[in-house]
Design a protein around this nucleic acid. Structure first.
Lengths: 211, 211
DNA sequence: TAGATTGTTAATCGATTAACAATC
DNA sequence: TAGATTGTTAATCGATTAACAATC
């Protein structure tokens, strides 16, 4: 049951399963991979294989016990959870991420934002935004291990360097730049422009087929 | 040179090449795939293969002509460009996306945002935000084909339905919900919670190795 | 037993990498 | 010619799908 290598696609599906399982009526105790597959319009074999990775509670003929399965998926996903996370840059994007509803849903939490403005503020949802000068002490005190970069492109590398100095181990970068970091830092760049381009391309190639 | 099927990974690399090529000194006229690979820390064969997909200007012994290669990549990427795009929801996230620097870099543009607030406003960068009541007429007039959803989870499906009614062909969804659409609509859900989880998992599995 | 379901083993597919032939 | 580089063909790898055996 160890999370060896988990692809993002698998994570995506697991969170779909979780949502679906939780949305089922109270009195539904057992569920088969086939039923889940049908509901989510996925291949049944794929669902079965995914579930086997996560749980060994599947019983022939009756399928999986719902509560047990939910617990197993959550356990698998949250094996890493509780990793303290903060955001640098509390403009529109930073505040949006601080208050993002999807994190809470998945048991995730971004602790605080940091910004160049001097006063401590709060987001609409009540998350604290501290002046950036407090970054180092905060990271030390709370053992912050993931830093999100939501500053403009020109200050992204500086923010990144500072996070690395603070001992952060992973960086999630929303600024449209290629960051340079020491090799032992995990960097994931979101690259929204590429995502939008991908959508456009998909659209135009589909057009070629259809018309 | 037709864009048949382009994976997101390939798009990502192409935009890396483009950035790199543009950042080279003026007087650099020729460049080899090997040199690009070394600079970006990628495999040389992979770069060569990517470039071959995009351009047939590669010459043995001397490599690619830089300007020609830039033009070929841009052409390949922008084959679909000019697809009109708008955003529904102009809270923090919506405004952040409207003003996102990375889009302009890549020749992309989000035309406007729409929000439940009644008055027409502008973002910091000057993008217009219209009352949602104008959505239909705007989409018709400008032939909008991509809609971005940046509203809270509870109103995402409604926003989606409305966009579909407006004739939008693709939806880029940032709300943490699974949308239901007619089959001919292309939907890409961003699922930030899954991305953050992926980062955490990667971190924790790495830990197991290291320690 | 028969049927539903799981888990396993083999086949397919796409993307990446390696080995090599072609050529300026 | 020799060397650098490209493009091509084959090998590998991971993820998905298909076929099947196991079992309650």
């Amino acid at each position: 049951m160890e999370p060896h290598k988990i692809s993002k696609k698998l994570l995506n599906r697991l969170s779909l399963y979780l949502d679906h399982l939780k949305s089922l009526p109270e009195d539904c105790d057992n569920i088969s991979a086939t039923a889940i597959a049908k509901a989510l319009e996925l291949g049944d074999v794929q669902v079965r294989k995914d579930l086997a990775k996560v749980s060994d509670g599947g019983r022939r003929r009756t399928g999986h016990r719902r509560q047990r399965l939910i617990a197993d998926i959550e356990n698998y996903l949250s094996s890493a959870s509780g990793t303290n996370t903060i955001i640098v840059g509390a403009g529109n994007l930073g505040q949006a991420l601080l208050d993002y509803g999807g994190f809470a849903n998945s048991g995730l939490d971004v602790m605080a934002g940091f910004d160049i403005h001097s006063a401590t503020k709060r987001t609409k949802a009540g998350k604290p935004i501290y002046p950036i000068s407090k970054l180092e002490s905060f990271c030390n005190r709370y053992d912050v291990r993931i830093g999100i970069i939501a500053v403009p492109a020109d200050s992204a590398q500086a923010a990144c360097d500072r996070l690395v100095d603070c001992g952060v181990e992973a960086i999630w970068n929303f600024a449209p730049v290629q960051l340079t970091t020491p090799q032992n830092i995990v960097v994931h760049s979101e690259n929204l422009a590429v995502s939008l381009t991908a959508l456009q391309v998909q659209l135009s190639s589909r057009e070629r087929k259809t018309s």
